[in-house]
């Protein structure tokens, strides 16, 4: 419980930071409504998501109603309203990947991570998304983990992908601990 509370507070704080950053960036951008989608893309590109609070700010910037910006942002697949995980996982469900069992792969991630598609794990480590064709159909089924494309994915490879990230994390943690120890002893 306490953990969750702390995490939630952390998220609130982060969202505040993001909103402040957006408020600082907006004035430099053209107010031509043709720029609406590019601006939303830019915010998402920098911060990883569109905090709901930013919708009103963007609306005020362009001098258009919040409902309109909300309508545009919710129309397109690209925009997300919650922060992505540190390791965003995108499972391809394009035609070729579907035929080769992409759905089963998605299901395995869902089960393994305990989240549904479109969600982020509580610890913000992973987020899960479905995408339609990343353009390597010849290597189907395909999963994009972070920037890396994993090809010919099987349920056991799902396990492998997560384990690999966990190991990497643990190594990083140990190094950090070591560093801290060193700096402590200095």
């Amino acid at each position: 419980m306490v953990d969750n509370l702390e995490q939630d507070q952390e998220i609130d704080l982060e969202e505040e930071r993001v909103l402040d950053a957006i408020a600082a960036e907006l004035p430099g951008i053209s107010r031509d409504v043709h720029q609406l989608i590019p601006v939303l893309q830019k915010i998402q590109h920098i911060h990883g998501y569109l905090p709901l609070g930013s919708i009103g700010m963007v609306a005020a910037h362009f001098g258009i109603p919040g409902a309109k910006v909300f309508g545009v942002a919710t129309f397109y697949n690209q925009f997300r309203f919650n922060p992505p995980g540190r390791h965003p996982i995108k499972v391809c469900l394009g035609t070729a990947c579907h035929v080769k069992g992409g759905e089963i792969i998605l299901e395995n991630f869902t089960r393994r991570l305990g989240i549904e598609e479109g969600e982020t794990t509580k610890d913000r480590e992973y987020s899960l998304e479905r995408v339609a064709c990343v353009g390597c159909c010849a290597l189907a089924p395909v999963v994009v983990v972070g920037e890396k494309i994993e090809s010919y994915v099987t349920p056991s490879k799902v396990e492998g992908v997560i384990t690999e990230i966990e190991i990497q994390n643990e190594i990083a943690e140990r190094e950090k601990a070591k560093d801290e120890q060193q700096s402590d002893s200095e």
Binding site: I55, G56, A59, A60, P65, G66, A67, F70, T74
Partner: peptide, 12 residues
Amino acid sequence: ISFFGSREEGVG
């Protein structure tokens, strides 16, 4: 149909 922001100051 959405009234998004209709409660927010300025936007509403």
